[in-house]
């Protein structure tokens, strides 16, 4: 099970801050494809991806109990 977090406009589009994917292992790219499929309106490719609070590449692997976050362009400060 992989947990995915959504923030800001992504949270509003999904309608929830988090969901779980019932898989034991996926690449980051596969997570993105899963989300694009499930939420066609979600601008997945505009988001950075963090796994366990660190930014990752598309080819990195996500394992069960990892927390994936979609980080849309930030606007703090």
């Amino acid at each position: 099970m992989i947990k995915v977090l959504f923030f800001a406009e992504l949270e509003e589009i999904v309608g929830s801050r988090e969901l779980t994917i019932e898989k034991a292992e996926l690449t980051v790219n596969e997570v993105k494809e899963y989300l694009k499929d499930k939420f066609p309106a979600l601008p997945v490719d505009r988001a950075m991806i963090a796994v366990n609070e660190e930014y990752v590449d598309d080819t990195d692997v996500v394992k069960t109990n990892d927390i994936v976050a979609l980080v849309p362009p930030v606007s703090g400060g």
């Binding site: 800001a8 963090a50 930030v74 400060g77």
Partner: peptide, 14 residues
């Protein structure tokens, strides 16, 4: 510091 906040820190403004 402020420039980096605007690049990498996951904070969003509405």
């Amino acid at each position: 510091a402020i420039e980096r906040i605007k690049e990498i820190v996951p904070i969003w403004k509405k």
